[in-house]
Design a binder for these strands. Sequence first.
DNA 1: GTTTAACTATTACAAATGTAAATATAACGG
DNA 2: CCGTTATATTTACATTTGTAATAGTTAAAC
Lengths: 135, 135
Amino acid sequence: MEAMPKISESEWEIMKIVWKENPLTAEQIAHKLPEGMGWSDQTVRTFINRLVKKKALGYEKSGRSYLYSPLISEKECVRAESRSFLNRVFNGAAGLMMTNFLEETPLSDQEIERLQRILTEKQGKGSQDASRPKP
Amino acid sequence: MEAMPKISESEWEIMKIVWKENPLTAEQIAHKLPEGMGWSDQTVRTFINRLVKKKALGYEKSGRSYLYSPLISEKECVRAESRSFLNRVFNGAAGLMMTNFLEETPLSDQEIERLQRILTEKQGKGSQDASRPKP
DNA sequence: GTTTAACTATTACAAATGTAAATATAACGG
DNA sequence: CCGTTATATTTACATTTGTAATAGTTAAAC
C-alpha cells in the first residue's frame, strides 16, 4: 500500500477528474474542471506535475503531449482521507461521526432506506468482534 | 458566523483539548496532548499563538501565565471541517459518503442500532423537502 | 529543414504549516 | 529590590500549497 502520498485540496480536484476518466491530456483535465475553479492553465499543469512527482499520476507520451492516468486508486485515497478526517475531527470515533452526520445532513427517504438496508445487513455479521479465530 | 478560521491538523489537536475542558494554561494543554504527539513545549505554544491570532482561542491573564478558552464552538468547527471533507472527497454527496463509511467501518451492534434509530426518526420527518412553508 | 505553435519544465513567490530556538518580560522567592 | 525562572513574544527556517510567469523543447506546418 506504499504510504499514500498526501493529496492537497487542489490536487484532489485533478485526481477526481482523472479517476473518473483516463487517460487524459493536461488540456482535457483543465477543461473538465468545475466552472467556478478559475485556475489558469499553468496552475493546472503545476498541480498535475506535483501529482506526477508524488507518484499519484503516471503519464505516457502521445504526440506533442502527455496522457495522464492515476497510479493510486480512488478507493485507497478516499479511505486514507477519510481516516485522516475521522481522526482529526472525531478522534477516530466512527460511530460518533456517523451519528453526527446523520443528524446534520438532510437525506431523501430513498437514501435513508438505502442506509437502513446496509445497516440491517451489517447487523448479524458481528463485525464488532474482529478478534475471532480464523476458521 | 464570522467565516470560521481555517484550523490546521496540528491546531485541531489543541482545540480538541480546549473544547473538552477550559480554561487551560499552555502548560496544561501541552500535558494533555496525546502521548505519541512528541511536540516540544515551544511548538505547542506556537500553535496556541497561531490559534489566538486566528481568533480561535481567547485568553485572560492569570498570575504569570495565560488561561486559554475557545472562541469558536466545536460544533461549528466540526460542521465546517465536515463540509470541506465532504466536498473534497465526495463532491458533496452526503449519501454516498455515508454509504461508504458504513461499508468500510466496523460497528458494534449497539452502534448499528443507534444509527438505525436515528434513521427511523428521520424517516417521516421529510427532511428531504426543505421547502415547506413554515407553520 | 526552419519556423512556430503547443506543450512541458523550470523558476518564482507569498501564505500556511510544522517545528522550534532565541529573546524579552514579568512574577515569585527570598 | 533583585535575581531566577517560568512564560510569552519574536524570529527562524524548511516544506507544502496556491497561484502563476517564463524559458525550453519538440512535433507540426509549411
